[in-house]
Amino acid sequence: MINRSRLESVTERIIEGIIRFCGFSAILFVFGIFFFVFREGSGFLFSGLDIGQFLTSPEWFPTSVSNKRYGVLALLAGTASVTALSMAIAVPFGLGAAIFVSEFCGPKLKETFKIVIELLAAIPSVVWGFIGLTVMNGVIIDLFDAPIGLTVLNGGIILALMSVPIIVSIGEDALKAVPDSYREAAEALGATRWQVIYRVLLPAGKNGLLAAVLLGIGRAVGETMAVLMATGHSVQFPSNILDSVRTLTATIAAELGEAPVGSDHYQVLFIIGILLFTITFIVNLASDLVVKGIRNK
């Protein structure tokens, strides 16, 4: 240790530098992206855009010849409804599966399960969208006697299938992190299996399980291609789950490619990007506060 050669100490320092750079680069990239999105949208955001109308009007007419209107309320409602439905499906299924994988099944079955779930996570979103557009559309028309199958329900189910793998794998890790001594103590006190899970494991793994759910929500809010194809891409308020909607992300994806660079329409799409940034920031902040609150109890 004392006789460390000069070469070793130099390489040590270089490697340390590289690792430090890797750490800081994450922050750099996040701020870089935020700066870029903000710069592209800021011109119109501060001069020209009526922010009140932007947030409260459901009228989205970005390419109207006579009267352009930029209102994202219907798009917000679309994102909210699809995300809410997908979480209503994915959270019980995902957490249930996490509990099953971590507490009930044997080691062999567990391995199979984990591989299958990881395979589910590996399916590209455009393939999910394609399934929504071609398979689920017909199924929903037949099952619910609906006029069209590209609906909140279709998008919600597909997003649920996409977020379940995340919820399962992170939720399972959270439950695995609960020390075995807790389980043993509970069982020694005569608790049934259900009581162990409900009274001991869930409270002990609360933070990790919440993180799992929030990451699932993040996946659902940010997903683009699948919802673009499966929800029908239609600007309207959904009155039930068999209505078509359009989400914020899908609007950016569909319209940015052909919006002339620098035009109002182009800048509004970047402002939607800022809005999405803000939404995810609020979700993350809220989750941090909730987790802290739980910890302090």
């Binding site: 109207s64 010849v65 009267n67 069209i148 590209l150 239609s234 078509s244 569909a254």
Partner: peptide
Amino acid sequence: GNTADFKLGSRDLH
């Protein structure tokens, strides 16, 4: 013509 818009609520495919 050049002045009016389409109704909202159509399914806009890509």
